[in-house]
Amino acid sequence: MKLFKANVTDVKAYEISQNNFECQTRRRSPHYQSSGGKPVHYAVCPACENPIQIIGLYTPAKHTEKPFGKHVTKTIRSLAKYDQQAYDYCPYASHKLSLNKNQKREKITDREKRILDQLIEHFDQVAYIFKEQTGIHLSKKLATDMLKAYKAAEGYLYQGANFLNVPWMFAYMSNNQKLWGRKIVNPELQELIKSANSNISFNENGVLTTKSYSDVNFWFTDHQRKNDANGDLIETMELVISESSKNIATKLIEFDHNFFQSLLHVSDEKRPRKDELVSLARSILEALL
Rank of each mutant, 00 (worst) to 15 (best):
T236P: 04
D256V: 10
L233F: 07
I253R: 08
S195N: 06
V216A: 07
K251R: 14
N230Y: 04
D228N: 11
N199H: 10
E243P: 04
I234F: 09
V240K: 14
K194V: 05
N217Y: 13
F202L: 12
T250N: 12
S198Y: 08
K194P: 02
A196C: 11
D256A: 12
S245I: 13
T250M: 12
R225F: 09
S201E: 10
N199F: 14
E238N: 13
V207N: 00
L233E: 00
S212T: 14
L252S: 10
S198F: 07
K226G: 01
S214A: 15
K194E: 13
F220H: 09
E204V: 14
F218W: 07
D256G: 03
T209A: 09
R225L: 04
I248C: 10
S198I: 05
I234C: 01
N230M: 01
E235C: 04
T209Q: 12
D228I: 03
H223T: 00
S201G: 06
I248F: 06
S214H: 06
T236D: 00
E254Y: 13
E238P: 03
T221C: 07
T221P: 02
A196D: 01
G206T: 04
G231S: 01
D228A: 04
F255T: 01
W219R: 13
S244V: 09
A249W: 03
N197F: 02
Q224Y: 08
K246E: 02
S242A: 11
W219M: 06
L252N: 12
N197E: 11
K226P: 01
F220E: 02
I241N: 05
K246N: 10
G206F: 11
A196G: 12
M237W: 13
Y213L: 05
N230D: 02
V240F: 01
M237K: 12
T210Y: 10
A229Q: 04
S195F: 05
S195K: 07
H223A: 06
I248Y: 04
L252D: 05
E204R: 15
K194G: 03
N197T: 09
F218T: 03
A196N: 08
R225H: 08
S198P: 00
N247E: 00
A249S: 06
Q224H: 11
E204I: 13
K194H: 05
N203W: 15
S201I: 06
S244F: 10
S212F: 14
I200Y: 03
K246V: 08
A249R: 09
F220L: 05
S245M: 07
N205V: 05
K246A: 03
N230S: 00
H223L: 12
D232H: 02
F202H: 07
G231H: 01
Q224D: 03
N217D: 14
D215L: 11
N205K: 15
